[in-house]
Structures are given as C-alpha cells and as structure tokens.
C-alpha cells in the first residue's frame, strides 16, 4: 500500500493552533518539518542525539505532568531508539504523545530504505511494549482524529503516519543548542528558568 500523505502537511496539521503543546522533534527530517511549520520557542528540535527524541519527550512529560508533550520523529530515528518505547510504556505518562512520520527511508543520508520498508511494524511494537493506543495512519481523512488524540488522549499515545518519501527544501530552526534550551525553559518556566 503506497503512502499518499506528504510529511510537511502532516506536521503542519499536528502543529496548527498548538495552544500550550510542548514539542520535541527528532534528527533530522521532522526537525526541518517542524521548522517549516513555524519556529516556536516551545519546540525543542534535536540536531543530534539520534534515537533520543522519545526520551527527551518522556523526561519532559514526567517533569510537566500538567502539560501535553508531543514527540514528532522519523522512522529512522525511532528505530535507533526502539527501547525508549518500552521505557516510556513502563512509565505510562498520561500526557505524552509520540508521532512517527514514517517515509520508510533514511531521508538525510541518501534515501536508503529503513526497516519499516521491509515490514517492521513500529505501531505493533509500540502496542506490544504496552502503549495501548497505538495505530497506523494512512489517509488524510484520519488527520483530524489524529490531532485530537495527540492533544487530548488520556494516556500514552502512539501513531505511525505513513508518508511519501520525498526530498524537500531544508527549513532549519536555530542551531545553537544553548539557545534552544534556554528559550524553551524561559517560555515554559518564566523567571524560574533563570533562577533555578
């Protein structure tokens, strides 16, 4: 079954009217996708630490149980940190949503096919880890329900969104890690960010 959705459309939809959503994106394409949707101080875009997007989101979700955290990452990035699905499932934070933008390719390194192109089913893995609400999303008509679930589903949520493999113009968020951290903390914590 070939994918029909485009990744930038999906990520823009996930981030439109985001309210007080806290967002973590993974190296690399989902970081560019989120930047294309509009740079935001409450998005922490990973430029490195590949495989760690879910864990950054988990740490944030555990520290901020009153806020919704959305991790948007790619299939290559998630495959590198698959154990983090198990770790997140053990914790079951009620405020964490994970969306894997799955183009079945390593988009930054020459479009080699990833494991998902060979049938590895990340949603089934998430479910088997204990993320009860895990599903594959293939059609644009499913996006409104996906947006609702990522923001309000009561409990840990996972979706694997199948998208077209395409090379896109890079849209880059700020690169300076210290800046990205400091502006996120200021936007979230206010004065505490400077005094903690």
């Amino acid at each position: 079954m070939s994918a029909s959705m485009k990744r930038r459309d999906v990520v823009s939809t996930l981030l439109a009217n985001r309210g007080d959503l806290l967002v973590v994106t993974g190296l690399g394409s989902t970081t560019w996708d989120a930047a294309a949707a509009g740079d935001h101080p409450l998005t922490f875009p990973l430029w490195g630490a590949m495989g760690n997007a879910v864990m950054v989101g988990l740490g944030l979700a555990l520290a901020q149980p009153q806020r919704r955290v959305l991790v948007i990452t790619g299939d290559g990035e998630l495959l590198m940190g698959m154990g983090s699905l198990a770790t997140a499932a053990v914790q079951q934070p009620a405020n964490l949503s994970i969306v894997c933008i799955d183009n079945e390719h390593f988009g930054e390194t020459g479009m080699q096919r990833t494991h998902t192109a060979h049938g590895v089913d990340l949603a089934a893995i998430a479910k088997a880890c204990g993320i009860q609400h895990a599903r594959v999303v293939r059609e644009a008509s499913e996006l409104p329900a996906l947006v609702t679930d990522t923001r309000t589903h009561p409990g840990l949520f996972f979706a694997q969104v199948k998208v077209v493999a395409e090379k896109l113009v890079l849209t880059l968020p700020p690169r300076d890690g210290g800046l990205l951290k400091a502006r996120f903390r200021r936007a979230l914590l206010g004065e505490l960010a400077d005094t903690q």
Binding site: L22, M55, V56, L58, L60, Q91
Partner: peptide, 26 residues
C-alpha cells in the same frame, strides 16, 4: 522520586535533558 528503568544508558541522556527542559533536576 520518579524512578525510570531504561533499556540502555543512552536513554538516560535524553531523560535528563527533557527533565531539565521541564524544570526538574535528575
């Protein structure tokens, strides 16, 4: 104390980064 068992130590680096983004020491 929130105690997080991890599958590999690498996960811990992300965990502490996320916690600090959220204003928590770990």
């Amino acid at each position: 104390m929130k105690t997080v068992v991890m599958t590999t130590e690498e996960e811990g680096v992300g965990l502490v980064a996320g916690a600090w983004l959220g204003g928590e020491k770990s």
